[in-house]
């Protein structure tokens, strides 16, 4: 249970960063932290005590395996996060080109 709580705290750390930081790069990093916390959640749901990794091999004795499906989900979501992060970084670079700053309080040509 303590693991789930820690994981939830990690999610909140990321959310706190997204909401309060004023630097574009720090916002992107906070988003990544949030994503990792979500991935960790999924891995924790799949975890079983005394279970091995879910890979069939020739020599291994048949033991309890952890659930492989959430791990596949996490792999997919990592790929997605990679894409989104690259997109955000590209946008941040272009924003820096236009405004010469990473500070979001100075980037406000759109109001509301």
């Amino acid at each position: 249970m303590i693991l789930y709580i820690l994981c939830f705290i990690l999610l909140l750390v990321g959310l706190y960063g997204v909401l309060t930081k004023k630097d574009l790069i720090k916002i992107i990093l906070s988003l990544s932290i949030m994503g990792y916390a979500a991935n960790l959640f999924l891995i924790l749901f799949a975890y079983k005590n005394d279970a091995i990794f879910p890979i069939l091999s020739e020599s291994a004795v048949q033991e309890a395996m952890v659930d492989p499906l959430p791990q596949a989900l996490v792999l997919t979501s990592i790929v997605i996060e990679l894409g989104i992060t690259a997109m955000l970084v590209a946008l941040a670079v272009r924003l820096y080109q236009k405004y010469k700053t990473f500070d979001i309080t100075k980037i406000r040509s759109l109001s509301g």
């Binding site: 999924l42 749901f45 979501s77 955000l88 924003l95």
Partner: peptide, 28 residues
């Protein structure tokens, strides 16, 4: 302003996607 709008959209969209992912995890 287009980059600014896209950045805002992407940040808020990513937050919501993360919440959805956690929801999917709990569902599973």
């Amino acid at each position: 302003f287009e980059f600014e709008a896209a950045f805002k959209y992407a940040v808020i969209g990513s937050i919501s996607s993360t919440l959805i992912l956690v929801g999917i995890g709990i569902t599973y």
